[in-house]
Design a protein around this nucleic acid. Structure first.
Length: 255
DNA sequence: ATGGTAGATACTCTA
């Protein structure tokens, strides 16, 4: 069982790359973020023709998340429980092959002290409450997506320069750690030790060419599911393509 | 010191 997460930064722009990548990487389940399309325009039929069912929730221009799967998608849940119809589309959950999959596009936060930063911290508290209220850590649970937070220094190309900046400030790291303490393991660290690999590189200033990146795209698993994990890796190949997403896919394999 | 690029939209915002 192969499960991947990828912030595609517009599914419309990335569709040719997504289809080619599905064909090459052959994941069973893919969680997408920043689809940037309303539901009426989601390319459901093209993905079905490629062998994937989909569940999605999107909005115009910003945000938007989707789950693609070769196996049946059950018990789809959209948004956090206290969201309303106007809320930003940042969470979709579903059960596939007995695994509760929770796909999130955690708010960027813009800059420390901003309204968006406060929204990010609050969103993370609400995400923790979502797990307390709706999931059991005795089950197979997987949380993945663009977390917009680097957890530890090894997740940052220049930790000294990034300390206290957006994506690596102490309040963000404390808030995401509180989510983790629900009962998750960071699967990439669990399986790869202290290696320095990144999942996102800014489009500007040749960041990818210099490997000036952050590891902000994550796959976290409950203890039960962690024990089935065989591999977790970041697929940098998509970042070398013409007109790439700024994020690379992260792929986990389970026995 | 506050640029650099990309995407969607509509003459700017978000990342």
């Amino acid at each position: 069982m192969k499960i991947a997460t990828w912030n595609v930064n517009s599914i419309n722009v990335r569709m040719p790359q997504l289809l080619a990548w599905l064909d090459a990487a052959k994941p069973d389940i893919v969680c997408l973020q920043e689809t940037k399309v309303v539901d009426a325009n989601f390319p459901e039929l093209e993905l079905k023709a490629a062998g994937y069912d989909s569940a999605f929730t999107g909005q115009k221009s910003y945000n938007g998340v989707a789950i693609l799967s070769r196996l049946p998608i059950e018990d789809v849940q959209l948004n956090l429980p206290d969201d309303d119809a106007e809320s930003q589309k940042r969470l979709i959950a579903a059960t596939i092959d007995g695994i509760r999959i929770v796909n999130t596009y955690i708010p960027n936060g813009s800059e420390l002290g901003s309204d968006k930063y406060a929204f990010k911290l609050d969103w993370l508290m609400r995400l923790r409450r979502f797990f307390d209220a709706t999931c059991s850590k005795e089950n197979d649970v997987l949380l993945c997506g663009d977390f917009n937070v680097a957890i530890e220094p090894a997740d940052v190309w220049n930790p000294a320069a990034w300390e206290g900046k957006i994506h690596f400030s102490k309040p963000e790291r404390a808030a995401i750690t509180f989510v983790k303490q629900w009962g998750f393991r960071d699967l990439f660290r669990e399986l790869n030790g202290d290696v320095r690999e990144f999942s996102w590189w800014d489009y500007r200033a040749g960041a990818f060419q210099h490997d000036h990146g952050l590891r902000i795209d994550h796959i976290w698993t409950s203890q039960k599911l962690t024990s089935r994990a065989a591999a977790c890796r970041i697929d940098r190949s998509t970042r070398t393509l013409d007109k790439p997403s700024d994020h690379a896919p992260v792929i986990a394999e389970f026995n």
